[in-house]
């Protein structure tokens, strides 16, 4: 697997994703500059977290006009794998690669903490090393992670098993008490219908090594690396 981490002005988890992909997973990894149009033959594109363009209009709203994003859209349409984390998820919804929108947290404040996630679909290229219903602990860090979609859209997500992660308690129950930001249906991460584009608010790259609080995020990267193949 060759991975590319997109760098927008204001991306700040770009080095973190690069570190995990390259040094922990052992994948060949490159940075993709927002003004470029060459994807350098990568198999996986990662939109990292951060504050692209300062998040000054709406999170992810300006990034979608970058030259690189037009290329990534084509790449995804042709079946290429795209992972958006936090601000990257916002870029994916803003650019139409994933349905719905991410709004201001219901508590209005930025929130950074470990949360419990239930894996609701382990049959994706990104989650095949988890089990359905497994509860994992991965940190969030965002002010705008409140997922919204209209009723019809929600029905479609449910029917197609597109909801991959939900916020839950330690027993896997996804209720309002365990919802950190007000997301509809406690949604923390979704995949597109085709199954190649995943967006999630939590940061798996922040817990992918033994020295961290948990190592639960490692398996997401390992899943996609195994799925694409050719690492280490």
């Amino acid at each position: 697997m060759k991975a590319g981490v997109v760098v927008f002005p204001g991306s700040n988890c770009d080095h973190d994703c690069y570190h995990v992909l390259k040094h922990v997973i052992g994948a060949e990894t490159v940075f993709l500059w927002h003004k470029d149009t060459d994807l350098q033959g990568v198999d996986l594109v990662v939109f990292p977290g951060g504050f692209s363009y300062g998040d000054y209009l709406r999170c992810g709203a300006i990034a979608k006009f970058s030259p690189i994003v037009s290329e990534v859209i084509k790449f995804a349409e042709n079946g290429g794998h795209v992972l958006g984390i936090c601000n990257g998820f916002q870029v994916l919804t803003e650019s139409g690669l994933l349905p719905g929108a991410l709004m201001r947290n219901r508590g209005l404040k930025f929130k950074c903490e470990y949360v419990n996630l239930r894996v609701d679909n382990s049959d994706t290229p990104y989650t095949n090393m988890y089990a359905d219903g497994e509860v994992i602990r991965i940190p969030i860090a965002h002010a705008d992670g409140n997922y919204y979609i209209d009723e019809e859209g929600m029905k479609e997500l449910e029917e197609n098993k597109q909801i991959v992660f939900r916020y839950c308690d330690e027993n896997g129950t996804a209720e309002d008490d365990s919802n950190p930001n007000g997301s509809l249906g406690n949604i923390a991460g979704i995949i597109n219908k085709k199954g190649n584009v995943l967006g999630m608010m939590p940061h798996p790259e922040r817990c992918a090594e033994g020295v961290m609080e948990t190592r639960d995020g490692y398996f997401l990267f390992e899943s996609i690396a195994k799925f694409i193949g050719g690492c280490k």
Partner: peptide, 8 residues
């Protein structure tokens, strides 16, 4: 396309 997110 930019100033408003027409979904919300």
């Amino acid at each position: 396309t930019m100033l408003a997110n027409m979904i919300i």
